[in-house]
Design a protein around this nucleic acid. Structure first.
Lengths: 140, 140
DNA sequence: TTTGTAATTGCACAACCTTGCAATAAGCCG
DNA sequence: CGGCTTATTGCAAGGTTGTGCAATTACAAA
């Protein structure tokens, strides 16, 4: 369902310019298996194109977020991680005891979204959450 | 149900030292009406005690978070805001269109917490969320 | 009240992310 | 293909938050 190139296509259609910096940033995100940080993206881009500036990477990430093409997740590591939405939405339960991560489908949050819409007329944008707490193994 | 002094009491009982820096940081949080930022706390503390360092404020906030005495909420303003849990848990729906904020009781998230516990054995710590999206007035 | 000890602070610095501004270059149009 | 316009970049600087380390100080115990 998700082809490499989706993001590029969307950008052109929306009239944004395809600079080498953007293309390489996008490639890094799309080729990353899971959740990639800005610094990791920058390292990959800078390897091929040494004089890029990391603020360009941050600006590209902000643009892709705004267009809904990537999601941003805060795993509480002091930095945020990015994921292409084309590879599917999901969420994570992060155990603060053992550090374990349980992956979650989008469905768990559907009832909440519906309740917010029904009771408050609010259309929530719950894209890629990290929910903190304690997993079963680590007791209550 | 919440007295000024709750936090101080908890700290002593847990064996933490009551330094003037901590006491003033705590006072700033408890006397703030709503959600206060680290910089605002620091300004209040520094007014009476000029040579405090802002990193001490951050360390105190981290401690209070760890002990579950304050919650931290990210309203996406580039800085985070703090709230004493003694004044009650709550959540916020933040409209990304008009900037409006709808306050929410804790109850809305109870079904989600129960579902996570039931289906994943995960005890989620959903303390003080800002949920982004679009409010009813701003249409879909 | 004085002393001892370990928690806490201040300081300096670093990491992550954002922004203003002048220089550059992507894509349009002829 | 060459020039024009304006989006985009690089650079430098700034804001928020975290951290290592030596100096200080709260509290316990004498």
């Amino acid at each position: 369902m998700s082809h490499s190139g989706d993001i590029v296509k969307e950008l052109t259609e929306q009239g944004y310019r395809l600079t080498p910096q953007r293309l390489m940033t996008i490639a890094a995100i799309e080729h990353s298996d899971g959740h990639i940080s800005a610094e990791e993206i920058y390292a990959q881009v800078a390897a091929k194109y040494p004089h890029v500036n990391i603020s360009t990477v941050y600006r590209t990430l902000e643009l892709l977020k705004k267009l809904g093409l990537v999601t941003e997740t805060d795993f509480d590591e002091g930095r945020v991680r990015y994921h292409p939405v084309g590879k599917g939405h999901h969420h994570h339960l992060v155990c603060q005891e053992c550090g374990g991560i349980i992956d979650l489908g989008e469905a768990v949050l559907t009832p909440l979204k519906e309740a917010l819409l029904r009771e408050y007329g609010f259309s929530a944008d719950l894209r890629h959450l990290a929910i903190f707490g304690r997993c079963g193994k680590c007791g209550r």
